[in-house]
Amino acid sequence: MLGFRDPVADAIGLLRPRTVIGPSLRATGNWALRFDTFLHVRIGGLVRGTCWLILEGHEPVLLREGDTFMLGNPPPYVLAGSLDARPRPAAPVWAGAEDGLVRIGPESEEDLYLCVGHIGFDEENAALLTDLLPPLVIVRAADPHGTRLAQLIDHLATEVGIAAAGGPLVQNHLAQILLVHMLRAHAGRTDRPAGWLSALNEDGIGAALRAVHADVAHSWSLKELADISHMSRSAFARVFKSHVGVPPLEYLIRWRMNLARDALTRDTMSISELARATGYQSESAFSTAFRRVVGSSPAQFRNQARRQLSSAVSGG
């Protein structure tokens, strides 16, 4: 059985997040660092002090103590102590970190203390999240989610600064918890969050999404899902599409194919087993749906994944 309980947990599970935390930054004086573009998500927050975040194509944003930010597939950006500071490349500065810490300027009780991390995803499924995120999400310390996020950032910064047993494991889990809370904050302030992020809202649409994820092999009908949402079929279809971006049964098909791609990539099930696990009565019906969504047959997709794995193992 393919497993599912909660749309958010399921989607993040498919993303297979890989977390790199730190180094943390402590800085004083007139400084600025330019970070190159990168894939997926960068997340961070201010434990102490203030700094400017300057994202290409956006107005500069002043971050204050307790603020948390998330960057989704961002263009190059700058972190700076002042707007008139001349940026220098961040990579060589980051490479000089010692004991999980980069320091700019003399040590001071008034210096900036910034904790950042990078979360990368499985490339096959990364768009499940990155397509739904704006380049920049900021949660202020005064936001209803702000206190919890600030506490997580503070805890994460502490873990980066100590060489305790299990540190990388703790950092990884804290970063993923931080990601989920940032997504909740983003979804809560967005009138119409797209895709599975809408499941973060406690409404009828969320109930239908949770039902789909709880039993993806079930032959769901529009009426069943509408009943779960306590709506008429027409109202449910309209509201679901406005929130999620696609009709309900199209969402079901796409989610099934996301699960199928993951299983084929990991080579954990035969195609006939996978067809049954994703709600298809025959292998041919499953293959037709898979080709429509993915653009290749399940066998072709699995063979390509095997070749890529073999090449990676052999170093070719």
Results as ranks from 00 to 15, higher is better:
residue 76 P to W: 06
residue 42 R to H: 09
residue 315 G to E: 09
residue 225 L to D: 11
residue 254 R to K: 09
residue 38 F to S: 10
residue 78 V to W: 01
residue 226 A to H: 09
residue 46 L to K: 01
residue 306 R to N: 08
residue 211 A to P: 08
residue 309 L to G: 11
residue 172 N to G: 13
residue 138 I to E: 02
residue 32 A to I: 14
residue 247 P to F: 12
residue 78 V to C: 02
residue 248 P to L: 10
residue 245 G to I: 02
residue 288 T to P: 00
residue 118 H to T: 12
residue 262 D to K: 09
residue 272 S to R: 12
residue 10 D to N: 12
residue 209 L to T: 02
residue 192 R to N: 12
residue 271 I to V: 11
residue 259 L to N: 06
residue 219 S to K: 08
residue 246 V to Y: 07
residue 116 V to C: 10
residue 281 Q to S: 15
residue 309 L to P: 00
residue 286 F to K: 02
residue 298 P to T: 12
residue 209 L to D: 09
residue 98 E to A: 09
residue 199 A to R: 08
residue 172 N to Y: 12
residue 259 L to R: 07
residue 3 G to K: 15
residue 39 L to V: 13
residue 165 A to G: 10
residue 313 V to D: 14
residue 28 T to N: 05
residue 51 C to R: 03
residue 44 G to Y: 00
residue 211 A to Y: 05
residue 316 G to H: 11
residue 53 L to A: 05
residue 246 V to K: 10
residue 174 L to D: 14
residue 307 R to N: 07
residue 16 R to G: 03
residue 268 T to R: 03
residue 151 Q to H: 10
residue 192 R to K: 14
residue 227 D to H: 10
residue 307 R to K: 14
residue 167 G to M: 03
residue 139 V to D: 04
residue 182 M to S: 04
residue 53 L to F: 15
residue 236 F to I: 00
residue 127 A to H: 13
residue 255 W to Q: 12
residue 52 W to E: 08
residue 188 G to S: 12
residue 77 Y to D: 01
residue 295 G to V: 06
residue 20 V to E: 15
residue 162 I to A: 00
residue 176 Q to K: 13
residue 42 R to I: 03
residue 107 E to P: 06
residue 230 H to M: 10
residue 33 L to M: 11
residue 39 L to R: 15
residue 304 Q to D: 14
residue 128 L to Q: 05
residue 101 L to G: 02
residue 52 W to H: 14
residue 14 L to R: 08
residue 88 R to A: 06
residue 23 P to K: 05
residue 296 S to V: 13
residue 257 M to Q: 02
residue 27 A to H: 07
residue 241 K to E: 15
residue 81 G to R: 06
residue 213 H to K: 02
residue 257 M to T: 04
residue 102 V to L: 11
residue 54 I to K: 06
residue 70 M to N: 07
residue 293 V to I: 15
residue 186 H to A: 14
residue 10 D to A: 11
residue 51 C to P: 04
residue 183 L to H: 04
residue 109 E to T: 12
residue 198 S to R: 04
residue 24 S to L: 06
residue 209 L to F: 11
residue 193 P to R: 00
residue 202 E to P: 00
residue 187 A to D: 05
residue 101 L to E: 13
residue 114 L to S: 08
residue 75 P to Q: 11
residue 182 M to L: 13
residue 242 S to W: 04
residue 36 D to S: 12
residue 283 E to S: 14
residue 69 F to P: 01
residue 298 P to K: 14
residue 133 L to D: 10
residue 93 V to P: 04
residue 172 N to V: 09
residue 296 S to M: 13
residue 206 G to D: 03
residue 105 G to R: 00
residue 269 M to D: 08
residue 5 R to Y: 13
residue 268 T to L: 12
residue 123 E to R: 13
residue 279 G to C: 06
residue 315 G to N: 04
residue 7 P to S: 07
residue 106 P to I: 08
residue 196 W to D: 09
residue 307 R to E: 10
residue 148 R to G: 04
residue 298 P to E: 00
residue 129 L to Q: 03
residue 198 S to K: 02
residue 237 A to S: 15
residue 109 E to I: 11
residue 40 H to P: 03
residue 153 I to T: 04
residue 40 H to E: 09
residue 179 L to R: 10
residue 218 H to P: 01
residue 236 F to T: 01
residue 185 A to N: 04
residue 176 Q to F: 00
